[in-house]
Design a protein around this nucleic acid. Sequence first.
DNA 1: TATCGACAGTTTATATATGAACTATTATAT
DNA 2: ATATAATAGTTCATATATAAACTGTCGATA
Lengths: 158, 158
Amino acid sequence: MKLEKELGLKAGIKVTEHEALLNIYYTGDLLKKRARDFFTQYGITDVQFNLMNLLYYQAEEKTGLTQAELGRMLLVNRSNVTSLIDRAEKAGLVVRVDVPGDRRYNAIRLTSKGRKIIEDVEERYMDEVKKVIGILEKSEIDILIRSLERIRQNMREV
Amino acid sequence: MKLEKELGLKAGIKVTEHEALLNIYYTGDLLKKRARDFFTQYGITDVQFNLMNLLYYQAEEKTGLTQAELGRMLLVNRSNVTSLIDRAEKAGLVVRVDVPGDRRYNAIRLTSKGRKIIEDVEERYMDEVKKVIGILEKSEIDILIRSLERIRQNMREV
DNA sequence: TATCGACAGTTTATATATGAACTATTATAT
DNA sequence: ATATAATAGTTCATATATAAACTGTCGATA
């Protein structure tokens, strides 16, 4: 269904490029709301899942990731990372650990609780993702990804 | 460029459907950041632009839109609409007006200041949007829109 | 080696977003 | 006609997000 109709717009979206942009926004919003609902049953937020998922797959278990690295990977700024880690640490999902040899860094590591949650949840979440996105053929997904990559590339250039 | 590389991920994204989802998220985030930067020069936020744009095109000038209608069109909940309107009203962009015949509603209307800003900014913003999204051919944009519509449709069904 | 610039992280003010509990008003069903 | 549903909006607690100003630490260099 056209976005205009989904949102109950009386006047149409006049510029096709704008319609594409709004489709990206709103689809992302809806996917995020759905992810938030999904993770609620496991007592975590969607953002906390993404954070823990990065720590699980992108970090050596013994070293963790620094807050600056997490910010780059999550595409959020450092002050936001501080507050994300504050809450995740308070919830017992991660810990801040000193990095020997450079006192500027915090290494962020999953706790055993955080690790266990990822191990419990990840496969079920991926099944959900496959169910939702899998309405598209593999070749269509590849085209979608490629188009979004080109938009981001273009943003860096213009 | 692949998202993995853009974000500096060491381990790849294993599930193609998940890669697509993350591409939608991150592209939307980057577009939003860019819009925010763009509107800063006009003293408004990207969210305020979207709000005012709806009031400009989707409402009769004399009647405005209710907060519930705005919430449906912006895909945000009513408590968020309350705070958006609070700030936009404080900034002199919109006003709350009583609706005759039903005291539950607020009609939200653009002020002349709000109207003027939209008239000043909209064309320039659309040029930006065309520049960023226009890296894709019209036919590719149509396919992108159609794929995102199908994902949303599928979310409503599963 | 003293300093200066770069980098990591925190704090504060503010905007955006949700859900739950609330008030007020209107529509409906008996 | 009245009790009940539904609807519109607000308030409060909380999460996520940014920018700007700040502290602390490290590296480069003069």
